[in-house]
Design a protein around this nucleic acid. Structure first.
Length: 286
DNA sequence: CTTTCAACCTGAACGC
DNA sequence: TGCGTTCAGGTTGAAA
């Protein structure tokens, strides 16, 4: 899915366009999407409104009075808002197309607001989940996840990064950055982008980084997030980067294309069992 | 503790 | 055209 920039786009869309509207009806087409305490149902949201939408890493937390819904879009979830009275938004996995007629067969949840606007949750692979809980269980829920600082939060700063990278024993940079317990929000696209920007090979041992290397990596993560968040993230369709905003993404999904830094060919490998794109000239094997 | 790997699912691309 | 294989922006839990 949906990594931090895409989930943040969903958060903004819901917060700016749908929060504060009363929910008139709820339709759930994939029961396992919703995890709820015994005796609870997604229908309990009818008559309530979205009071707030928060994000930590790739998790979204919607509060409806004393009920919270914690959502994770996993690999292929998508949030779409439409309505006569709102601008509309689309965020998350780009399949089905953001402008596809709704609902379609991957539409699993629809919240219809009293003014007629709708929030659709779609997921072609059925991995996404929405977990209902009392609001006072939200904090313990996240505490149990032990997630590291969110990549665009104040807690993710240079001092923290320098110290944390020395503490963690996960050896290689790519698995480390993908570990949400280390830091939250980075996924397979943005880790490749950040490592390319920092000119570091994904299998570089974290313990081998110089002060300067740590700084370069931190700055790269910040730079990539600052680039991706305002444009609501990247689109990779069937393994190919769709560059709707300049040349971003620069390496992920661009196998065989010239590196925009040095002109060398971008190669695809596997690291940690994940498809990994890099430029071997800019990011030499350690 | 780290690392690997299967599992959870569907759909699209590719090769023959 | 049809069929088998492979891969996909994540997380979890088991096993090495």
């Amino acid at each position: 899915m949906p990594e931090l920039p895409e989930v943040e786009a969903a958060r903004r869309g819901i917060s700016e366009q749908l929060a504060g509207k009363n929910i008139g009806s709820v339709e759930l087409f994939l029961p396992k999407l919703v995890i709820a305490p015994v005796g609870w149902s997604i229908d309990m949201l009818v008559g309530r409104q979205i009071d707030s939408v928060d994000r930590h890493g790739k998790y979204l937390t919607l509060r409806f009075g004393d009920i919270a819904a914690v959502a994770h879009l996993k690999l292929s979830g998508q949030a779409i808002g439409r309505g006569e009275s709102i601008a509309g938004f689309a965020a998350g996995h780009p399949v089905p197309a953001f402008d596809a007629p709704m609902p379609h067969k991957s539409t699993h949840l629809i919240l219809t607001f009293e003014d007629g606007s709708k929030l659709y949750l779609t997921d072609i692979r059925h991995f996404a989940r929405v977990q209902l809980m009392p609001v006072d269980e939200v904090a313990p829920f996240f505490a149990a996840l032990k997630m590291g600082p969110d990549a665009i939060s104040p807690e993710f700063n240079h001092d923290w990064f320098r110290q944390a990278i020395g503490r963690r024993k996960i050896a290689r940079l790519k698995p480390l950055l993908l570990d949400q317990k280390f830091m939250a929000g980075i996924g397979n696209i943005y880790v490749d982008e950040a490592l390319h920007h920092a000119r570091l090979h994904p299998e570089t041992l974290a313990s081998s980084l110089s002060e300067e290397g740590i700084e370069r990596l931190y700055d790269a993560i910040v730079a990539i997030m600052e680039l991706a968040v305002p444009i609501a993230g990247a689109k990779i369709l069937n393994g190919k980067a769709l560059t709707e905003h300049g040349e971003f993404p620069f390496v992920h999904g661009r196998e065989g294309a010239p590196c925009l830094t040095c002109g060398g060919a971008i190669v695809k490998t596997r690291v940690n069992n994940r498809g990994t794109y890099l430029c071997l000239a800019c990011q030499p094997v350690p």
